[in-house]
């Protein structure tokens, strides 16, 4: 005996979450694009759009609370709804990090980039891929895929270390570059945080599917 209306509510909630995830994924790319091409108009648009993204998170949260309060979900239903709730929060955090990158674009003004961007766009692409796959694993209820996604965070961390070292060498060579280097470093840091958030999302997927709460990427760096 299916619980038709409840089931419809949960799948609708999932659709809404995936939809939200797709929008957030796009913002990651756009923010990097704004940094790379120094497109301030795009950056402005991203910052404005962030308010909408925040709003969506509250809507999703509210829908979760309504189901929790009225449907007394148990077992898998409970895990699904809790996971949706927490994934929505992580997504909003990711959007904030992307917004931070857009803010860097604006903050840098017309100042030329310190160096051509190679690793940072690579990081952003990885984040986008990771997020897409994480959301996919949630849609397909695939815990193994979620674990594989979490493992990708290592690559992002390594890229960040590389970026860090590279920018440090710039600063050591010429201390006047410190502001510009710090800007890029900060962008990298935001991307690294996005990777962590996606790892958290993967953990939520594993919980929703298996009921186990486990930390997926233990050697993660702060």
């Amino acid at each position: 005996m299916p619980r038709t209306s409840f089931d419809i509510s949960i799948s609708q909630l999932k659709v809404n979450l995936l939809d939200y995830g797709a929008r957030v994924e796009r913002v990651i790319g756009e923010s990097m694009e704004s940094l790379k091409t120094r497109d301030r108009a795009l950056a402005e648009a991203i910052i404005q759009n962030d308010a909408l993204l925040n709003e969506t998170r509250y809507e999703l949260e509210d829908q979760c609370y309504t189901l929790l309060a009225t449907q007394s979900p148990m077992a898998h239903d409970l895990r699904d709804i809790i996971s949706i709730l927490m994934v929505a929060i992580e997504l909003e955090r990711i959007a904030d990090h992307a917004k931070n990158i857009a803010e860097i674009t604006i903050y840098m003004g017309n100042e030329p980039l310190l160096k051509p961007l190679i690793d940072l766009p690579r990081m952003a692409e990885l984040c986008q891929l990771m997020l897409t796959r994480a959301l996919d694993s949630f849609a397909k209820q695939d815990a193994d895929e979620a674990k594989a996604v979490a493992a990708m965070d290592d690559e992002i961390d390594n890229l960040y270390k590389q970026v860090f070292r590279e920018l440090m060498s710039y600063i050591v060579e010429d201390p006047r570059t410190v502001t510009r280097a710090m800007n890029l470093l900060f962008a990298g840091h935001n991307l690294e945080r996005i990777g962590d958030c996606i790892t958290n999302i993967a953990e939520r997927v594993v919980y929703a599917v298996t009921g186990r709460l486990e930390e997926l990427n233990v050697q993660r760096q702060i």
Binding site: M1, A75, H76, R79, T210
Partner: peptide, 19 residues
Amino acid sequence: IFTNPQDKRTEDYVTGRFG
């Protein structure tokens, strides 16, 4: 039992899908 039952039938029952 109520967060992560091992048996599918228990899961169906506690989530209200037994019939």
